[in-house]
């Protein structure tokens, strides 16, 4: 194989490899796809079950609790706006994608981050890998996802899951590690067990960092979900993608507005949750 042939050789290897995977691993990948799609579709069904104004009010109430009355009003208006410009189903679709992907990512990233915070050796292995994941443009994660799961929401969710892992992991690990020394000493001098040290001392001090990680993961997921419109994920991403391709200015403006609204709502909700957590310690 000479240098000039590399591209072709590469391509054919990839194709063969993928064929092998789909022959042998199709069961696994189909299962993954089904799980992901199932989670997404159940959530979406839940969203669609309730009339749009109820969802909007619920979000506003949550916003009130976490970020104050003024934000709640803005959120309510924003969400209703999304409905009135005819993009409610898409907004809900995007929301469902973001929530499912982020939750899955947090379910993996936070426990892993806690472990890494307690065991520096583990951290030294995982952190550089996830650092690399974060450095890469998120767009490319669609490739392995689409190769394994084909078009559709499963792909979008898988790619988003990958992108949402690093922030939550890194910040959780950091938070656990960065407990001030004097409190570690206090714990030891008081005769705490390992569990007690973790639950009563390390974890409370790590909470701000963990919340920041959740916030970042959420926003990374959101960004990715919008990009994933290109793989048929539904939602606002697909709206934007088709609007750009057809140069439909009106539709793209509407889509952009909906995305910005959703961005602001999600971000402020996450930040509000972080400050509310913080507020518990005064």
């Amino acid at each position: 194989m000479s240098i000039e042939n590399f591209p072709d050789a590469f391509d054919s290897t990839v194709d063969t490899g993928l064929e092998w995977l789909s022959d042998n691993g199709s069961g696994l990948f189909d299962a993954i796809n089904d799980v992901l799609k199932g989670a997404y579709e159940s959530l979406l069904w839940l969203f669609n079950l309730t009339p749009y104004y109820v969802v909007a009010v619920l979000i506003a109430l949550l916003g009130w609790r976490l970020a104050g009355l003024r934000f709640a009003i803005i959120a309510l208006i924003g969400m209703l706006f999304c409905a009135f410009i005819g993009l409610w189903p898409e907004t809900m679709g995007t929301l469902a994608l973001v929530v499912v992907a982020t939750l899955l990512a947090l379910l993996v990233a936070i426990p892993l981050g806690v472990l890494a915070g307690l065991l520096p050796r583990l951290d030294r292995i995982i952190e550089p890998a996830l650092d690399l994941v974060q450095t890469m443009p998120p767009y490319i994660y669609l490739l392995p996802a689409i190769a394994l799961l084909g078009y559709g929401t499963g792909t979008a969710l898988l790619a988003t899951f990958v992108v949402a892992l690093p922030p939550a992991f890194c910040l959780t690990s950091l938070g656990i590690r960065m407990t001030p020394n004097e409190f570690i000493e206090l714990g030891n001098a008081s005769g705490v067990t390992g569990w007690q040290m973790f639950l009563k001392i390390r974890l409370p001090f790590a909470m701000p960092s963990i919340m920041a990680g959740i916030n970042q993961s959420l926003m990374m997921a959101f960004g990715m979900v919008v990009i994933a419109g290109i793989v048929g994920s539904g939602g606002l991403g697909e709206t934007i993608y088709s609007a750009i391709r057809t140069l439909d200015i009106a539709k793209s403006i509407n889509g952009a507005i909906a995305i910005v609204i959703l961005t602001m709502v999600l971000d402020r909700l996450a930040q509000g949750a972080a400050t509310a957590q913080e507020g518990k310690r005064l």
Binding site: E182, F183, E185, L186, N188, A189, S190, G191, V192, T193, K200, I201, P204, K280, R281, L282
Partner: peptide
């Protein structure tokens, strides 16, 4: 050792180390 630290020897620190939360 934990029992000794918990019941027999107490410690007061220069920085006090009161849990802020």
């Amino acid at each position: 050792l934990r029992a000794v630290r918990a019941r027999q020897i107490g410690m007061v620190f220069q920085s006090v180390a009161l849990l802020p939360h």
